[in-house]
């Protein structure tokens, strides 16, 4: 077990392993997202209350799931980096942050667009949208903090600490915002908590969620490989990698 973790921590080994894993995740992501898109847009039945605007759920929910999971994985990677000093973990954390912020933005945007036919307004201080907005600020904070240190190592450690502080706070923020929302907006119609969604509706949703997750894994692998090339460009094995290629 420990040997495996330390092996995984070596950039060279990770570079080789991710090269083998990456195509599978890309293929899985592409197939599932295409199937989920066609299924969700064209074949799933329309909602009896919201009509076809309900189809936004097939991107809003996967993006919102990812927005939260990416932050958690970033904090876990930060913890691994701080405790075991595994550099690959920090490279992964560094490339996850912008993607997480993008997914948070997508969740916010699709939620706002969904609000127009549902609530009649672009923005509502709905509990879910509000916590998504706060999450976006947390992402921006982590990205900004990493970028503002002159030394990459300090920036990496600072961003790891902030990600861990953030991940402890996310549930607290989420519950307090939920509580605040029920206090101020009693019994409004919530978009995504429709009771007992039929199988024909949630099955495409499941396909999309799995597709988005494999997209996240594939992208993280690919960009971590880029980050390895960038940071290890002086290492002999990286140089040898492109020796015969010329």
């Amino acid at each position: 077990m420990w040997a495996f973790i330390h092996k995984l921590g070596s950039p060279k080994w990770f570079y080789a392993l991710s090269a083998r894993l990456q195509p599978w995740f890309w293929a899985l992501a592409a197939v599932l997202i295409v199937i989920g898109t066609l299924w969700g847009l064209a074949f799933a039945p329309a909602d009896y209350q919201q009509g076809n605007s309900f189809r936004i759920i097939y991107i809003h929910v996967p993006a919102a799931f990812l927005a939260q999971s990416v932050f958690v994985s970033m904090a876990v990677a930060g913890l691994v980096f701080m405790v075991w000093k595994i550099k690959v973990a920090d490279m992964a954390a560094a490339v996850m942050a912008p993607f997480g912020a993008a997914m948070t933005f997508v969740a916010l945007f699709s939620g706002a667009v969904w609000g127009v036919p549902t609530w009649g307004t672009w923005w509502m201080w709905d509990a879910r949208l509000t916590s998504m907005l706060i999450l976006l600020f947390l992402y921006l904070g982590v990205i900004a903090l990493r970028g503002s240190f002159a030394s990459r190592h300090s920036g990496a450690r600072a961003a790891s600490v902030l990600a861990m502080v953030g991940v402890i706070n996310i549930p607290v923020i989420k519950y307090s915002v939920d509580w605040w929302y029920t206090l101020h907006q009693p019994a409004t119609f919530s978009v995504t908590s429709s009771p007992a969604m039929p199988v024909s509706m949630w099955l495409p949703l499941l396909v999309m969620v799995v597709g988005f997750y494999s997209f996240f894994i594939a992208l993280t692998l690919m960009r971590t490989r880029n980050e390895i090339l960038r940071r290890e460009s002086n290492k002999r094995w990286v140089k040898e990698l492109f020796q015969e290629a010329q």
Binding site: I33, T37, L41, S53, H60, M103, V106, S110
Partner: peptide, 26 residues
């Protein structure tokens, strides 16, 4: 989309743009 075309298609368009842009960037 039963009259909801601008909402559904803009939400999907922005999402696909971000997904494709992140692949392209990588």
């Amino acid at each position: 989309m039963g009259g909801h075309a601008p909402y559904v298609w803009s939400a999907w368009g922005v999402t696909l743009f971000f997904l494709l842009a992140s692949v392209g960037h990588a």
